[in-house]
Nucleic acid binder design. Structure first.
Lengths: 165, 165
DNA sequence: TGTATTTTGTTATGTTATAACATACTATGT
DNA sequence: ACATAGTATGTTATAACATAACAAAATACA
């Protein structure tokens, strides 16, 4: 079935963000059906909260909101839901921020690279085969076999770079 | 003046590690003289502890050792020394591990890329211009201006890859 | 020597994450 | 429908990582 595509990196001004959230939840739902795993109410809700914006959100920020809705919410509640979402590629962890962002393209397996604006906190995920290729290849030249790539580029997004001159 | 070079990534079997430590301390000393900043006893000692091996070490592991030598040691003691060493490029932080490794080539400014063996915990720093170039260039194509690159590749080093088959 | 600056000491607290065990829910075979 | 195995969540406690704020000591340097 057809989804409206999630906006491309940094083309995000004045977009209907609710559309991002519902697309992400719908994609997650389909992925879970396909894999015969359960997108429970809790997991769906945590996914929505991660998709609250295009900025990374911390586990305890998620918890703060969740507590207003579910009196049993505790750190383990959130971390377990996040673990599930991470394992299934529905969210990514930004290591340099100890925070989480939604994955815009959960269909394909990928590690992804992240562009993190230090001014507006927006994170764009890219899945750049050239980058992944150079990393794997150059590691392999040293005899290193790469399992997982963590690539996080911090700087200024186009809008903030313009504003900063 | 001449230093014996710190061993190349993954050529580290049976090397004299004390040589790595003393090289690193000597390089740090010279860098601090040149920059007119102070490599105090505390900072020198923390640098040595970071260089205790080629595996990343956590701040609280450093603290545990330091407490045996200096009864006033507290978290802030260690973090302040680490901040100094980080600012001056003498150590690097491995974001995906919340831990620190010594920098083998503190003379030049660089962000570096890290190859982290998940079997033996050895970390090798590389400073690969091709990688840095592709990252900056491909981010720039999207209008993103990169300040800082975090590149951490987890996998198996040559020795552990051989052992694993 | 006096004074400004930097470094370290000290205490407290904030933030992020996991362990361990109990209970509840869901799917499946009979 | 029932038993039961497996999965998910509740609950309490604690571990691991990091910073804030102010005092005291050491150092640089006029």
């Amino acid at each position: 079935m057809a989804h409206r595509p999630i906006p491309e990196p940094f083309q995000r001004d004045r977009h209907d963000h609710q559309e991002c959230v519902s697309s992400a939840v719908e994609a997650a739902h389909e992925l879970c059906v396909r894999r015969r795993i359960r997108l429970t109410e809790l997991r769906r809700r945590v996914l929505e909260l991660v998709w609250g914006g295009h900025a990374p959100i911390g586990a305890y920020d998620i918890l703060d909101t969740l507590r207003g809705e579910r009196r049993s919410a505790a750190p383990a509640t959130v971390y377990r839901a996040l673990d599930f979402l991470l394992e299934n590629g529905l969210v990514h962890r930004i290591e340099s921020l100890n925070a989480f962002v939604g994955c815009g393209a959960p269909r394909q397996a990928h590690s992804g690279q992240f562009l993190i604006c230090r001014a507006c906190d927006t994170v764009a995920e890219i899945d750049d085969g050239e980058i992944a290729g150079v990393l794997s290849r150059n590691a392999a030249k040293l005899g290193f076999r790469v399992d997982r790539q963590t690539v996080e580029l911090t700087g200024l997004c186009p809008a903030c770079a313009d504003a900063a001159g």
